[in-house]
């Protein structure tokens, strides 16, 4: 065990501070110290993506980031994407298009899809499949996940056009 570090994060827009060993993984800080159990732990070797969160504007696998590395970072988790009264369009579309079953991959999927649409607001199906390839799902075969993300993009684009 090594000395604990004072780690400051901005999580879902709010400043948070934790005392943690440097080796502590970001996913454990989020889940066990901050009570944000939306992101999950799946493979622990960066292959499955269920731990995906947004860190400084990038999708990262939080099982492979040390708490110490994240010191000073801005983090968004699934819990920061929508509220029960005002769901994020991706949350609505995953529901509408049956883009989830057991739900275990869903927080990582939606968080990743959110970043993908920030970078590519009007993706093709192929671009969605390539852009989501860091997130595994065992239940859906991805077909409805892809459909949900394309539908979310269409809705966001329609809203953007209407606003112009």
């Amino acid at each position: 065990m090594s000395d604990k570090m004072h780690i400051k994060l901005t999580v879902n827009g709010a400043p948070r501070e934790v005392l943690a060993e440097p080796r502590e993984l970001l996913i454990h800080v989020l889940r066990e110290r901050l009570g944000l159990t939306g992101p999950h732990i799946g493979c622990e070797t960066t292959h499955c993506g269920v731990c995906t969160v947004d860190m400084n504007g990038k999708s990262v696998k939080s099982c492979t980031v040390f708490a110490a590395q994240a010191d000073g970072a801005e983090i968004t988790t699934i819990e920061g994407l929508g509220t029960p009264d005002d769901l994020h369009v991706l949350q609505r579309m995953f529901h509408e298009h049956h883009g989830l079953q057991c739900g275990f991959c869903t927080p990582g999927m939606i968080t990743r899809a959110h970043r993908l649409l920030q970078e590519n607001p009007d993706p093709t199906e192929e671009e969605v499949r390539f852009g989501m390839a860091g997130n595994l799902c065992r239940c859906t075969g991805y077909q409805n996940i892809v459909r949900a993300i394309l539908a979310a993009a269409a809705e966001l684009n329609a809203a953007r056009e209407a606003a112009q």
Partner: peptide, 11 residues
Amino acid sequence: DARFTQGKGNY
């Protein structure tokens, strides 16, 4: 879906 899409599942 409501709980799973909002990260409120209980695994």
